[in-house]
Each structure stands twice: as C-alpha cells, then as structure tokens.
C-alpha cells in the first residue's frame, strides 16, 4: 500500500491540467478524484514485453 499523494501535489497537477478554477473552488473533489483514479491504475496490469498495439479502432 503506497502513501497517498499529498494534496498540494495533486492540486499542482490539476492546475497544470488547466483545472485552476476547480483547484480553487473544489480542492477536496480533486484530491478524492486523483487518489481514486490512482487506486484504479494500480489494479491495471502491465502486459509487459508483449507485442500489443493499442487499438485505434476497437473491434470485438
């Protein structure tokens, strides 16, 4: 279990992404959003050295 990213760093990243207004008005939402998506990304496997190109057009 890694340490959650500090709120100050999350809000700095949000500003870099153009969300300065949200960072001012809704900082708690952005911190929850960033920590939540980070938890999801930790579950995503890395396919590793497999020749898989991300599909431009996903065909089932």
């Amino acid at each position: 279990m890694s340490e959650p990213e500090p709120a100050t760093e999350i809000l700095a990243r949000a500003r870099q992404a153009g969300l300065a207004r949200s960072a001012d008005l809704y900082p708690d939402e952005l911190v929850r959003a960033a920590r939540g998506i980070a938890a999801h990304l930790r579950n995503v496997p890395d396919p590793g050295d497999v020749a898989l190109e991300p599909a431009h057009r996903f065909v089932p």
Partner: peptide
C-alpha cells in the same frame, strides 16, 4: 459528475 470526470485529468 465534476469529480468523476475530473479524475481523467490525472491519467
């Protein structure tokens, strides 16, 4: 919606 969609800014 704002919170859920904003999460994408951190990917």
């Amino acid at each position: 919606a704002r919170e859920l969609i904003s999460a994408g800014a951190f990917v």
